[in-house]
Design a protein around this nucleic acid. Structure first.
Lengths: 153, 153
DNA sequence: AAGGTTCAGTTCAAATATGAACTAACTCTA
DNA sequence: TAGAGTTAGTTCATATTTGAACTGAACCTT
């Protein structure tokens, strides 16, 4: 049994540091690309993507917050900004009057579709093309497990 | 040749989404643990760790910023906060009077040593223990390559 | 149907982050 | 050694994030 609070062994440490570093660095590149090509922040982009994936290009705020992994108040802010920019609109929900739909506008769809090729290209360059197909599969398996565990906590 | 701006194939997408999600979720847990046990934010903790790894528990601001992957102005802010909390102190550098040393105080060392076991434990629980040793090695290799590429850009 | 609880979303003030502009110090070259 | 260019770090104004408190609506339970 390893010492639970003791140092990680070198290989564990290497994996952990690489995970942290790769996360920061990729995020930084993405932030730049989105800003440059569509004047969007990464969180804003995530919101648009989740909405695009949803039925009718809309989701309730609370669902959207879970999907995009942001806090309620942060989402309120983001959606307000996106609404101001004309990319999203809010609609009251008739069946549950506490809820609010956030829905992509046509301009929102257009903006997203415009920036996505560049985004995908960047994800390819920074992550996908640096890995072998086997590594991609294994990384997908491993990190899906990690994420699922955390969501179930 | 795959369409550079087209959708990722399902396995690539899975890897990418898992990478994003795992990053967010782990970061969130870490943020909570550090806050709870030592009243530190993750960026603050990173700063302390980098200093602890350095010769004499000190680094120049610009070096520290690179190590911790934060902007200059962000680091200025973080170090000011840490200084206010008595965990770090600034010292002018005689050999280059533009430079500033950020150095861990004894209390900084103490605070870091106090929170690190819990931090390591959390890294183990959320990442290490969820992976097989082979996965850890492969993840380390793969993401080190990813990070190195980005640093070399 | 009253009372208690939970849930969806917003608001507010305080903390933190961003990026451009700035100061001061170093380096190099002619 | 003057002047141009570079580097280290800070400052400032603005933008974003955080978390706790709040409002209103739905859901129990009796």
């Amino acid at each position: 049994m390893t010492d639970a609070g003791g140092p990680l062994d070198p290989r564990e440490l290497r994996a952990w540091m690489a995970f942290l570093a790769a996360g920061h660095l990729i995020d930084h590149e993405i932030e730049r690309q989105l800003k440059r090509e569509a004047d969007l922040s990464h969180p804003e982009f995530e919101v648009l993507v989740r909405l695009r994936m949803a039925e009718g290009n809309r989701l309730r705020m609370s669902h959207l917050a879970r999907e995009a992994m942001v806090s309620k108040s942060r989402l309120t802010y983001q959606v307000t900004q996106l609404e101001r920019a004309g990319l999203v609109k809010r609609t009251g929900c008739e069946s549950d009057r506490r809820s609010v739909w956030a829905e992509l506008t046509p301009e929102g769809i257009e903006r997203l579709d415009r920036v996505r090729p560049g985004h995908r290209q960047l994800v390819r360059e920074t992550l996908i093309e640096v890995l072998s197909p086997e590594e991609i599969d294994l990384l997908g398996d491993a990190l899906t497990r990690v994420a699922d565990r955390l969501r179930a906590r």
